[in-house]
């Protein structure tokens, strides 16, 4: 019991962030029209590409003789970048269509 309490107070910052972010995440997309479901999914997909930061840190910390870490880290950086860049570009392409639609509307 005391262990758990200790852990909570030690990591309270992180716990606060997690709880608040859950509410923010739910709150901000609560009223999305169904037309935007897919672009929103795609945009969120790009945002979780933030995992790339972890890959960069892994890569940057790897000793130059630790080949396992180097190879896996390098792969992770590539995959993470794919997620970020591909995600944002695909989302933009989807939304481009919506913009064109607005133009003909005006």
């Amino acid at each position: 019991m005391e262990n758990i309490l200790h852990w909570i107070s030690e990591n309270q910052q992180i716990i606060y962030i997690v709880i608040l972010m859950i509410f923010v995440g739910i709150e901000i997309i609560g009223r999305v029209p169904s037309v935007l479901h897919t672009p929103l999914m795609s945009g969120a997909n790009a945002i979780h590409g933030v995992v790339i930061i972890g890959a960069i840190i892994v890569m940057g910390k790897a000793e130059t003789d630790n080949y396992l870490a180097l190879v896996l880290g390098f792969l992770a950086v590539i995959l993470g970048t794919l997620n970020v860049v591909g995600g944002f570009v695909v989302t933009d392409r989807m939304l481009e269509m919506f913009k064109g639609k607005k133009k003909t509307n005006v």
């Binding site: 962030i17 995440g25 997309i29 999914m41 945002i47 930061i53 972890g54 840190i57």
Partner: peptide, 26 residues
Amino acid sequence: FLYNNKVMLTGGILVGAAGTLLTILM
């Protein structure tokens, strides 16, 4: 969590929560 990196934490949890809700909305 692992790197105590706030931007990964916010980005990840944000997508986790929003993604779950979006799934339910779909």
